[in-house]
Design a protein around this nucleic acid. Sequence first.
DNA 1: TACCGTTATATCTTAAGGTATATAATGCTA
DNA 2: TAGCATTATATACCTTAAGATATAACGGTA
Lengths: 260, 260
Amino acid sequence: MELSSTLTLEMLGEPFLLEKRIELLYAIEEHGSISKAAKAVPMSYKSAWEAVDAMNNLSEQPIVQRETGGKNGGGTTITPYGLKLLETYRVLKEEHTRFLERLSQVTDIESGAFKTIGRLAMQISARNQIQGKVESIESGAVNAKVSLKLKSGNRLVSVITKEAVENLGLKEGDSATAIFKSSTVMLAVPGEMQLSARNSIRGSISHITVGEVNAEVVVDIGHHDVLVAVITADSLKTLNLKEGSNVTAIIKSSDIMLGR
Amino acid sequence: MELSSTLTLEMLGEPFLLEKRIELLYAIEEHGSISKAAKAVPMSYKSAWEAVDAMNNLSEQPIVQRETGGKNGGGTTITPYGLKLLETYRVLKEEHTRFLERLSQVTDIESGAFKTIGRLAMQISARNQIQGKVESIESGAVNAKVSLKLKSGNRLVSVITKEAVENLGLKEGDSATAIFKSSTVMLAVPGEMQLSARNSIRGSISHITVGEVNAEVVVDIGHHDVLVAVITADSLKTLNLKEGSNVTAIIKSSDIMLGR
DNA sequence: TACCGTTATATCTTAAGGTATATAATGCTA
DNA sequence: TAGCATTATATACCTTAAGATATAACGGTA
């Protein structure tokens, strides 16, 4: 038994962007004409034309621009607004697909019971959510040490219970997300003493927001990976941190949760 | 612009359980006959019958039992297996609906950009995920103190950054989930000294799993809410904890993340 | 055996969608 | 400027699938 689902954007209760229409729009973008696009999808010219017409009528701004006659007899192009909508749909669809995959993995479809605790669709308050690939898993008696390789090349080691690893079904090579609160990130300037904490990642400060007591420091660790640390305003002074400074971010491995 | 989506279970590539059919099945359960159910939904008798037939043919075990002729002219009842499937669908549907709500909340539909960091569909390694209602939010300069009232009546206070509160769009009265690692839960026996930690919840131990170094203790705090703590096997002995013992679970408010 | 309420099946109706083809628009070319 | 080429636009007709309605089959009851 398998799960399947469609995703459609509605406008005033009318279906507006659905799977088939998206396909059509992409084909129009590629071929520059409704008739060619209809052939490519494939669908009848009539339905293609009606779909395009319906979309243009429902939308505030036109999605496609149609020209009849002219150089090559005319043609149809997608407006920038239309392209933006396509991108929106793509993003939503991707997230939706991910959700369905996860949902069917997590559900025992015969009984309807969730194999996992907790909800699936959740936003989490933690500012630091960094994706990586599972490099190794060392299982102890109760805990497991999971090493995550980030796309920036850095490694993050997380210690979670063995049971959690099983619950998530984590294997080497899987992609997973390291999750930790910004208040668990400590900052040090290079050249200081060694710490017992396993995770120390070098980067440069890209932004600092100073409050009365605490300061929020954004550390760029390369390849668009970013860490956020909240430290006391005092420490900020003591360490003499400024935007552009090189720092080492330190996170205790037991402070890192994993998600997938 | 609105998001909408259907959820259908497929069997061998064929649509098997879809929205309409689920409705029909519930109506059959209520009325005990296909014809009455068809009227109630409403749909034509033919499509109702065909739907039932298709489902029975696709399924390994029959979903409905049909009797023609007899006492009241016959009738149709749903088998226990069918009822289980209905329950499965209900659970999946609920999760799916939640996801869509969250997705449309979180997406700026004009630009397709996510207003939030991180994925939406994620399982998290943390064993402790407890739902509650936001009772109060006290915003400081950088951090915010969010008080969550659990259905067991207990309160959990979480300290997260003000920005995270805004990101989640948390307001008083919202339901939210407290998330924390089992290793951040400390246990104490009643009558000990006061601690600075804001969160202390009384409960009784419902299960203990002892490892070589660590032990996992499951604490029932009432109303089906459960906490999991991982403590050292030594502490277990020192505190003389057994199944059934009354304990106080202590969690630092800064160790609690929030999700919604 | 006549009757009843139901499942099961057959026949008819309707609406949606597809195919095909005609028409309109426009720049290009001779 | 008169076709010409090419595409959008519109319409007529056909096909098919879904839906509605009518009818048969069934098995118990009175």
